[in-house]
Design a protein around this nucleic acid. Structure first.
Lengths: 334, 334
DNA sequence: GGCGGTCATTGTAGCGCTACAGACACAGGT
DNA sequence: ACCTGTGTCTGTAGCGCTACAATGACCGCC
């Protein structure tokens, strides 16, 4: 900074102001400073700046995996919102709670202005740490209870709507596939909603099967295999993601089971593949991008002191009905 | 830090050492400090630390999009390698050159130890800036020429191998689909290799069609449409990604074109969908995870002064032959 | 008993920047 | 001539930490 100041014939403070408060310095002076900065390859040291100012315009986020296209849109939403507010978004990967804890510590170490985490399953230490440092935190993909603020939609209601759709189409023997494993507890929430809705129709909600996240399409094949073994009269499945649903459909094609005629398949997440494959997948669209931007909005408002206390934003969902669950005329329509 | 020091009855320096050089302080003292830190929710301020020490253990990365599963593995590889070396990885999204420039500036501002960028297409200012600050940079998914260091594989050779495979299977009318748009210039490299290899077999290499990245599966349908319009006798297509290849296959299913019998379809990237769909996709496997970890290895070695000067690591590729291009017995084998 | 060596711990200076208060020039009003 | 205000620029102190040198305390050895 000193070099730039000298080169431009001004004081260090003027260089600082040029970058932080451009309107405080005269256009010509600013111009001269910027030219010299460019010439010398000077980029203000954010670390020193934030240290001195005691605040940062960086928001941290952890993402459990970048495999899914829902997360893609979710991150896009966050990115768009941070840009609009003049913040930066830095992301760290966290597939396990231990990794999440390490990521959160690093981000606190960077003294980010706020944090966006996925879900409500966190290490005890992570939670107590966040409580102590008092950093604004948004938990996404959840309806709570949250540490501080949350964004998400009602997955129980979404599950119930999916069940009702299948029942309306005349299916009786309906199964629910979920994911299990350390980072997947959020799928478990869907079970009671599924069972309640089945019970309300006088049906059994015992066909629940869990598969690991990591197997992707393969999970669909495995789940179908297991479900058909215990229920050969299976008529419909609700999958944890469109990926699994696609896996189920592909496996049906291999086995000669007709979808949707013999088996209705509902997905979750409105992935691209669901729109493109044949038959197209019925799915729950989570409006991930809005969830991402909403998370940032909450954070920014909190940082700016415009809101305080716990918040929980409902970003809604849509049940998109497509060919994979439609009993009648499904093939004729193509 | 002072509070922790007071609470543990030691000096601030001892607290600092406890975190930065645990072996320098006696186990009991260390224990006492760590307890107090946990109690008070103290996390060392990385910014102040890095500022004082003049170095950081953070590596920055930009990713153009987190839509693809190749990038998923690539990022996983980087993450694994940074953990092994005691570094942190912070990621920023950059879909356009302008966004990349902003991300690079922010990361330089954070005074990261090194940077991993995707591809060699960068804003002029980004390149000159990186040159001036002298930060170690790895460009990935490329064979150069690079600013500093690079990792990647020979996409021309991969293209040639794909063409040869199709010719061996007896296809003559072969098309190449690529992506275009600002962030996709790397696909263009494949064109000369395609045309050369076709010419070598005495065939025309004029069937080259570009589609936008953003349309996903839809690009496949669009490309097939355009190609069939100009060449109804089309026998094979090489796609820029497995997503596009899947889109082509889905479109063929809609139109009643048999794959691979009437049309051979080769993908690129070894995405999950290519293994799971029917027919399975022939594809170029880029070994993305190794590319990610190799990028970090280069950076760490450079930072530690064990290597200097330009580097270009070849992480190789594999041509995986599956049903979507096999002329004979393709259906009988299922 | 004095000396060097080792080890745990501690002061001090300074990393690069910004908040804040002050300085200085100039305009306009009285 | 004096004051007030405005707009632009500058000096100083200090953000939280670490490098480095320095301080003791203790040990073993001649």
């Amino acid at each position: 900074m000193r070099d730039v100041a000298r080169a431009a014939g001004v004081s260090a403070m003027t260089v600082s102001n040029t970058f932080k408060y451009p309107e405080r310095v005269q256009p010509e002076t600013r111009q001269r400073v910027l030219e010299q900065a460019l010439e010398l390859g000077y980029v203000p040291n954010l670390m020193a700046g934030n240290l001195a100012a005691g605040e940062s315009r960086v928001i941290g986020g952890t993402i459990p995996s970048i495999r899914n296209s829902s997360f893609y849109k979710y991150v896009l939403g966050m990115q768009r919102a941070v840009s609009e507010h003049g913040y930066k978004l830095v992301l760290m990967l966290a597939d396990t709670m231990a990794q999440e804890r390490a990521a959160v510590e690093a981000l606190i170490g960077l003294r980010v202005a706020g944090l966006v985490l996925v879900g409500t399953d966190h290490d005890r230490l992570t939670v107590s740490l966040l409580g102590k440092v008092g950093l604004p935190v948004v938990e996404s993909w959840t309806r709570g209870p949250v540490m501080d603020m949350g964004v998400g939609f009602d997955t129980s209601e979404a599950t119930r709507q999916a069940v009702r759709l299948l029942l309306r189409e005349g299916r009786r023997r309906v199964a629910l596939i979920i994911h299990d494993g350390p980072a997947s507890r959020r799928f478990v929430e869907r079970i009671p909603a599924f069972q309640e809705e089945m019970a309300r129709a006088g049906l059994s909600g015992d066909l629940v099967h869990a598969v690991p996240v990591s197997d992707g399409f393969g999970s669909g094949a495995a789940a179908l295999d297991a479900l058909l073994a215990s229920a050969p009269d299976l008529e419909a499945v609700i999958c944890p993601t469109d990926i699994v649903a696609a896996g189920v459909v592909f496996e049906c094609q291999r086995r000669g089971i007709q979808v949707p005629k013999q088996l209705a398949v509902a997905g979750w997440g409105d992935y691209e593949i669901g729109r493109e494959m044949t038959p197209q997948l019925t799915t729950i669209c989570p409006r991930s991008e809005i969830m991402g931007s909403q998370a940032i909005e909450l954070l920014v408002e909190r940082v700016q002191g415009r809101i305080r206390g716990p918040r929980l934003a409902d970003t809604g969902f849509t049940l998109i009905e497509r060919a994979s669950t439609q009993q009648v005329m499904a093939e004729a329509a193509t």
